[in-house]
């Protein structure tokens, strides 16, 4: 089931786009990232100030101070630092182990090399610029070109896989006083309070990714996109179809 990509036995306008490992990881992350973000906002509410450096508390200068996040954005919905930590620290295992297994699986099944590897041609400024213009005009690839990720898509996915998720996991670990004893994690990020700030910034990056991702799914045809992430089957958009859709 995993290695039917692209499927040659199906009708030519359909193909198996997402492997089972990608689909499972995607939906696990829908839950894990949502729980992590919402419980994280509740933890932030316990001390809604961010600092830079090794220490930082109320008498010290905060580079960011926010009002508390409202209940509809947090887990739980009413103030409980203890329950938020219960959710956050349990789902942290799901997020971190999920990423680890997915990266290993994607390394060995060729997903990284085949689908996410950004080629030299794609790195060229003219190619990047063309892709940016296409996105700005909401001009999406059709036919066979739609089977592959475009370069902005690859950049976004690689940014999440190799930058934002590892950053949020390791800055999270850096805030643990026990782990800090064995591993120089906090100083790796410029101190524990810097790690806490970077943890928050990485969360903002992930939320931004999810929002853009959802907009792109809606623009590209939500039924086809969501179905492909459930069953794996993706219907290649025809020449005139995307225009009608948009």
């Amino acid at each position: 089931m995993d290695d039917l990509f692209p499927d040659t036995t199906s009708a030519p306008d359909q193909l198996k786009r997402h492997r089972l490992s990608t689909r499972i990881w995607h939906w696990i992350n829908v839950i894990a990232v949502t729980v992590m973000a919402m419980s994280g906002l509740m933890i932030f509410n316990a001390h809604p100030r961010l600092y830079w450096g090794r220490f930082g508390a109320n008498p010290d200068h905060a580079w960011l101070e926010l009002p508390e996040f409202p209940g509809w954005m947090t887990i739980p919905s009413t103030y409980s630092l203890a329950d938020a930590r219960l959710w956050h620290l349990a789902f942290a295992w799901v997020l971190a182990l999920g990423l680890l297994f997915y990266l290993l699986r994607s390394l060995f099944n060729g997903h990284l090399k085949r689908d996410l590897h950004i080629t030299c041609a794609e790195w060229s400024p003219s190619h990047l610029w063309q892709d940016i213009k296409d996105h700005a005009r909401l001009k999406f690839p059709t036919g066979a070109a739609a089977a592959r990720y475009n370069v902005l898509q690859k950049l976004a996915y690689c940014g999440v896989l190799f930058v934002l998720l590892p950053l949020i996991i390791f800055t999270g670990l850096a805030m643990s006083p026990a782990l800090d004893a064995g591993l120089p994690l906090a100083d790796l990020f410029g101190g524990r309070q810097s790690a806490r700030s970077l943890h928050f910034i990485a969360m903002c990056g992930l939320v931004l990714f999810v929002l853009v991702h959802l907009v792109m799914v809606v623009l590209a045809g939500p039924v086809n996109e969501v179905r492909s992430m459930i069953t794996g089957w993706y219907r290649l958009p025809k020449e005139n179809e995307v225009k009608d859709d948009a």
Binding site: A57, L89, A181
Partner: peptide
């Protein structure tokens, strides 16, 4: 998950010391 934290952290850190700082690092 608390048990998982407890056992994995103990395994990783052993009896390592918490980071110690210099006078210059102290909170005013």
């Amino acid at each position: 998950a608390e048990g998982a934290h407890f056992h994995s952290q103990r395994l990783i850190i052993g009896d390592a010391l918490a980071q110690e700082f210099s006078v210059a690092d102290m909170s005013p």
